[in-house]
């Protein structure tokens, strides 16, 4: 399936900033289930971009811009060919043994309730199914991520929060799990990109991608961009600015079937 992505992130500052340094996790890699046909990141002001690969193997882009900057727009556009592999993840760069992803983080710490939920359902797909029922559909607004325990207790996790709950649940069962940031076909919103989960397969061979917001394995509608221990670790933009005042964030995201379908 050919999927086209148009993802614009715009920061507007209440006062001009003298410098901006950002780390962008906005570049997908080829894998056995996706081929990046075309991808570009554009910035609407004079900025230097440098590409790296981070410690987890993700492609990241450093953005450096000098002020005064009143607003900055990062525009990501591209096309990816995806195929159906029943959630099996392969052909991706792995820098660490899967066991690394068994460690918890403040955002993915399982409390007693999540641990009990995990034991009750046991199976990853059953856990994803239960979370899929619970998760609130993407409403297109920006959000402040709650930690897994808080979102689970509230009973209305967002898509990305549901992924963090699932990670906490899987780790509480001793299964390494990680957060995936990427795009989902049909996403039309003004919030953040999609998030789902990869869990280490029991056989110890590779990873299985599961999207708890959809209650099942990830499929050809998912474009995988980067992984992390939790959603913060895989945040699309991590930034720092030098200047006073506040910022307003506006995201405009369209993920659609490519115009040139197979």
């Amino acid at each position: 399936m050919r999927i086209s992505v148009d993802h614009r992130t715009r920061y507007v500052f209440s006062e001009p900033q003298s410098r901006i340094v950002q780390l962008l996790r906005l570049w997908p890699d080829d894998s056995d289930s996706q081929t990046v046909v075309d991808w570009r990141i554009d910035v609407d002001c004079d900025a230097r971009l440098r590409r790296h690969r981070d410690g987890l193997g993700n492609q990241v882009t450093m953005l450096y811009a000098d002020g005064p900057i009143d607003a900055i727009e990062i525009s990501v556009q591209g096309e990816v060919l995806t195929s159906m592999r029943d959630g099996h993840v392969s052909g991706v760069i792995e820098t660490l043994p899967a066991a690394f992803y068994a460690r918890d983080t403040p955002a993915t710490r399982a409390d007693a309730a999540i641990a009990a939920f995990a034991r009750e359902h046991g199976d990853p797909l059953a856990i994803a199914g239960a979370l899929g029922v619970m998760a609130r559909p993407a409403d297109g607004s920006g959000e402040t991520l709650r930690d897994a325990a808080e979102a689970f207790a509230a009973g209305d996790p967002s898509v990305r929060e549901a992924a963090q709950v699932m990670i906490a649940a899987m780790r509480s069962l001793g299964t390494p799990a990680r957060y995936v940031s990427g795009y989902l076909l049909g996403e039309e919103n003004h919030g953040a990109p999609h998030g789902w989960v990869e869990i280490a397969s029991r056989a110890g061979a590779g990873w299985i991608a599961i999207d708890p917001s959809r209650g099942g394995t990830a499929d050809e509608r998912h474009v995988r961009m980067c992984v992390g221990l939790d959603a913060h670790d895989a945040a699309p933009v991590a930034g720092s600015r030098l200047g006073a005042g506040s910022e307003a964030l506006d995201v405009d995201l369209h993920v659609a079937r490519g115009s040139r379908q197979e």
Binding site: R53, G55, L56, P97, A99, F100, R103
Partner: peptide
């Protein structure tokens, strides 16, 4: 392995440098 991989002092941000 868990001595290293699960240890908060092991920083994935440094892996591969």
């Amino acid at each position: 392995p868990e001595l290293i991989l699960g240890n908060p002092q092991f920083r994935h941000e440094v892996v591969g440098i």
